[in-house]
């Protein structure tokens, strides 16, 4: 057995094990930690598949930003564990049945050799100085430049949406008081002052 095969099985075991522990964990903090472990193992699998940039991005963006955001929200909200625990086992049989059926279908289809996937496709061996990042960047900034810019716009929309949603309205933002606007009289807004120009010059 090759060394990379052993690595694949080790990381696959970590991936599946941490995924199972994550979905069955009743403590949300523990679930988030197991999700981080599964992200690390899937990043290792991506490294085996020579997708170095995406593996590093997954660690930096997902573990470094998204999971920290998750943990932040979990710690900020006071989640009532008793209600979660009471409903935990209610849908467990249904979930197990559905996932076992889907797994068996996929394994049967994929391992039957119908598509001849394993023979028709094989990895191309690259030289030692081959750069995944420069290859990715070459395509991303030429062929896929419009989707790239759209992704930037999407992130901007997400920033605006998240801030607008969570921003506290009271006191800090200007808000219409419609009843007050409708019931306003001319006397409230316009004040007629009689003054002569000469007097105002003198006052200066």
């Amino acid at each position: 057995m090759e060394f990379t095969s052993i690595l694949f099985y080790v990381f696959a075991l970590y991936f599946i094990g941490s995924a199972v522990l994550m979905v069955t964990s009743r403590n949300t903090i523990k679930a988030a930690m197991f999700l981080i472990l599964s992200f690390f193992s899937v990043a290792s699998l991506w490294l085996l598949l020579e997708a170095e940039f995406l593996a590093i991005t997954l660690i930096l963006v997902y573990v470094g930003a998204v999971m920290v955001l998750f943990l932040f929200v979990i710690k900020m909200l006071d989640i009532d564990k008793s209600t979660v625990r009471a409903k935990f086992t209610k849908y467990l049989p249904l979930g197990i049945v559905v996932s076992v059926v889907v797994i068996s279908q996929m394994v049967l289809v994929l391992s039957a050799g119908q598509f001849d996937l394993d023979n028709s496709m094989g990895p191309v061996r690259h030289a030692a100085d081959f750069s995944n990042i420069s290859q990715l960047a070459n395509d991303l900034y030429t062929l896929y430049v419009y989707p790239f810019e759209l992704a930037a716009v999407l992130l901007l929309t997400a920033i605006i949406a998240a801030i607008t949603l969570v921003h506290r309205k009271e006191g800090r933002s200007k808000k219409q008081n419609i009843a007050e606007q409708i019931s306003v009289q001319a006397a409230d807004r316009v004040r007629l002052v009689s003054s002569s120009p000469s007097k105002s010059k003198e006052s200066k």
Binding site: A19, V23, L45, V84, Y91, I96, S99, V102, M106, L117
Partner: peptide
């Protein structure tokens, strides 16, 4: 390791995530 090994691995994890949605149906996080 061939392509279908990776496909089966991701199918298994996909279904674990699917089962997780069923199990933790009440907790949005």
């Amino acid at each position: 390791i061939v392509l279908s090994d990776y496909l089966i691995l991701s199918a298994i994890v996909f279904c674990i995530g699917l089962a997780g949605i069923f199990i933790n149906r009440t907790n949005i996080i």
